[in-house]
Computed example of a mutant assay.
Amino acid sequence: MKLRYRFLTFVLLFGLFTFDAAPTFGQVGDIGNILQSGREDANTLARAYLEPFGSGFGASLNTGWTNTAKTHGKFGFDVTVSAGLAIVPDAAKSFNVNELGLQKLELEGTNPVSPTINGTDETGVLLAAYEEINGNREKLLEFNMPEGSGFGYVPAPMIKAGVGLVKDTELMLRYTPKTEIGDFGNFNLFGVGAKHGINQWLPGGKMLPVNLSVMFGYTNMEVGSDLDVPAEDVIDNQNDTYNQYNSSKWDGQSVALNTDAWTINALVGKSFPIISMYAGVGYEASNLSITTPGSYPTVVPNENFDPNSSDEETKPLKVDALDEPIDVSIDGDNGLRALAGFRLKFTVFHISGSYTLSNYSSYNLGVGISFR
């Protein structure tokens, strides 16, 4: 049974349900096999495969903080449910395994280009590891890199509340308690931001026909899922491999994803009775960390190998355990950005949308209620 990276499926499905036009897919990755390739190669391959997801997820989380340049009046507030959708650049949809500097694995075949998680839905390259044992070149393991999702976007859902305070200042909060989504996993989200009007500090600023403000937002999102990778999944040749562990050794396997994203922007906008429009420039950054708590099986040469013995313990290969094999930190390919958006308000109900131009450009669409 192959391992499914269910935490990625869960995140994408939760984001995708907010987009009626988005394609639905139940599998976005199958990278369990790389866990057996050794700590260094597993981390290298995980980083290469997931890098656009990290950058795109951070860019998506950095959207949706505001829908006007104007701040709420004192004790005015809004609650907005929205979803960001980052666009993955074509250059980030594949990678060349020959450029990764793999330590243990070798490319099988001639084509070294493999899809990333947001690349084409074609099976990735075939990789294998070999070892010289008793004068023979023995194959320890072999696996294909996972296929891409065929979906060149990274969505992120969010719920935001904002309240007006004194001095033309607005406090913004994002919060979702730990929530289970079926068998896919769980997530929780927290974010804090602020927007401050600067017309009041400019000579004649209150006479200007536009609203000027600065804003900051920080979001942290955690996603987790249980995993199930028994030794049987990594043993190619049962007759030549000694398994010293019982099944309980692999209990407690899980995967955890943690994303930090922040942005700071200068905004200018104009509000009318029904529509508000704004634009701005700013900076964004993000970081995605992925860890795999628990022990995971791998196949290694058996130091007790004896070709003249028929004992189980002397087979040429054996199952070994890797503790927490993946510990990857991916900085988002973010930076300077420009953004523009609008809000349509009908009494207390509003619809909002925005577009952000950056290395990972993104859209955001939201609905909510607002007062003052």
Results as ranks from 00 to 15, higher is better:
residue 163 V to G: 10
residue 164 G to Y: 04
residue 164 G to T: 06
residue 164 G to I: 06
residue 165 L to N: 01
residue 165 L to A: 11
residue 166 V to I: 15
residue 167 K to L: 13
residue 168 D to I: 00
residue 169 T to P: 02
residue 172 M to K: 15
residue 173 L to R: 09
residue 173 L to Y: 14
residue 174 R to H: 09
residue 174 R to S: 11
residue 175 Y to G: 07
residue 177 P to V: 06
residue 178 K to N: 12
residue 179 T to Q: 09
residue 179 T to G: 04
residue 180 E to D: 14
residue 184 F to V: 00
residue 185 G to N: 11
residue 189 L to H: 04
residue 191 G to R: 06
residue 192 V to K: 11
residue 192 V to I: 15
residue 192 V to R: 10
residue 193 G to F: 12
residue 194 A to F: 15
residue 195 K to G: 01
residue 196 H to S: 08
residue 196 H to K: 15
residue 197 G to I: 00
residue 201 W to C: 00
residue 202 L to W: 10
residue 203 P to K: 14
residue 204 G to K: 09
residue 204 G to S: 04
residue 204 G to F: 09
residue 207 M to I: 01
residue 207 M to C: 00
residue 209 P to W: 11
residue 209 P to M: 07
residue 210 V to R: 04
residue 212 L to V: 01
residue 213 S to R: 06
residue 216 F to E: 03
residue 217 G to P: 07
residue 218 Y to I: 05
residue 219 T to P: 01
residue 221 M to E: 07
residue 222 E to H: 13
residue 223 V to Q: 11
residue 224 G to I: 03
residue 225 S to E: 10
residue 225 S to N: 13
residue 226 D to A: 12
residue 227 L to C: 02
residue 227 L to D: 07
residue 228 D to H: 15
residue 233 D to V: 04
residue 233 D to Y: 08
residue 236 D to L: 11
residue 236 D to K: 09
residue 237 N to H: 07
residue 237 N to E: 07
residue 238 Q to S: 05
residue 239 N to S: 13
residue 241 T to H: 02
residue 243 N to T: 02
residue 246 N to F: 04
residue 246 N to H: 06
residue 246 N to Q: 12
residue 248 S to L: 10
residue 250 W to R: 02
residue 250 W to L: 03
residue 250 W to Q: 00
residue 251 D to Y: 13
residue 255 V to G: 09
residue 255 V to W: 03
residue 256 A to M: 13
residue 256 A to N: 13
residue 257 L to H: 05
residue 257 L to N: 02
residue 258 N to W: 03
residue 258 N to Y: 02
residue 259 T to D: 03
residue 259 T to Q: 07
residue 259 T to H: 02
residue 260 D to S: 09
residue 260 D to G: 02
residue 261 A to Q: 03
residue 261 A to C: 09
residue 263 T to Y: 01
residue 263 T to Q: 14
residue 264 I to F: 15
residue 265 N to G: 00
residue 268 V to W: 10
residue 269 G to Y: 05
residue 269 G to D: 07
residue 270 K to N: 05
residue 275 I to K: 12
residue 275 I to D: 10
residue 275 I to A: 12
residue 275 I to T: 10
residue 276 S to P: 08
residue 276 S to H: 11
residue 278 Y to V: 02
residue 279 A to L: 08
residue 283 Y to H: 12
residue 285 A to P: 00
residue 285 A to N: 13
residue 285 A to T: 12
residue 286 S to E: 08
residue 286 S to R: 11
residue 289 S to H: 14
residue 289 S to L: 08
residue 290 I to D: 06
residue 292 T to P: 09
residue 294 G to T: 05
residue 294 G to L: 03
residue 295 S to G: 05
residue 298 T to E: 11
residue 298 T to Y: 10
residue 299 V to Y: 00
residue 300 V to P: 01
residue 301 P to G: 10
residue 303 E to I: 06
residue 303 E to Q: 15
residue 303 E to M: 12
residue 303 E to S: 15
residue 305 F to I: 05
residue 305 F to W: 15
